[in-house]
Design a protein around this nucleic acid. Sequence first.
DNA 1: TTATGCTGTTCGCATATACTCATAAACGAC
DNA 2: GTCGTTTATGAGTATATGCGAACAGCATAA
Lengths: 106, 106
Amino acid sequence: MPFKASHFKSDLFKVLSNPVRIQILDALRVGERSVNDIAEWLEVEPSSISQQLAVLRSRNLVTSRKQGNFVFYSIRDPAVFKILDAALEVFNNHLVDVRDALEKLE
Amino acid sequence: MPFKASHFKSDLFKVLSNPVRIQILDALRVGERSVNDIAEWLEVEPSSISQQLAVLRSRNLVTSRKQGNFVFYSIRDPAVFKILDAALEVFNNHLVDVRDALEKLE
DNA sequence: TTATGCTGTTCGCATATACTCATAAACGAC
DNA sequence: GTCGTTTATGAGTATATGCGAACAGCATAA
């Protein structure tokens, strides 16, 4: 087997290993949005947003739709949110661990 | 709020953006294992495995237990598997998309 | 039709930093 | 000393990131 699922996964996670890209995906939870819209929302230069969107596009995580001057981006596979939510769960569990550790110090 | 959840997530995903580390986590699905055990399983130098385990340890994804000469590692929070499984789901959906695209060509 | 402006993309640059892997040495338990 | 594990080191490679400028596409005003 020349291809391993672990490589696809690691590649996918690499795409997700950037705060801006994660925030872009989160911004698209409510539905499609234009580049400038996202840029203002995140307070990041539009060119940077466009770059990060290109990365997300290259991995088929988002799709674009052109309408007049605007380009509207949207999520391609909502399953990515499962990944993000699972990461949040790990984060929360971690917080609980830290809290418990602090309580033991008292 | 100086801290954003997106930063925790991106940091976590960065840890996961390595095929060896993913395979280590998968190897620990069945339970705790020693370093050499994992190394032989993945056909990677024990020192490399130890290095990657140190990364996983630093993010609290695994715990270690010492017993004699051996150090047994295990998963700290099974929720990480939700992340890995969700990534696999995205991968499978992607495969379906590709297959559908190919069928349209006929 | 031409001019103007808005939206988004891309390029080039600068800068910094990171990652992986392998070898070898050190460490701790027995 | 031996075994299993960890750490130090270094080479090589790669990559990220952000910014600003130039550019292209579309729409509307003049």
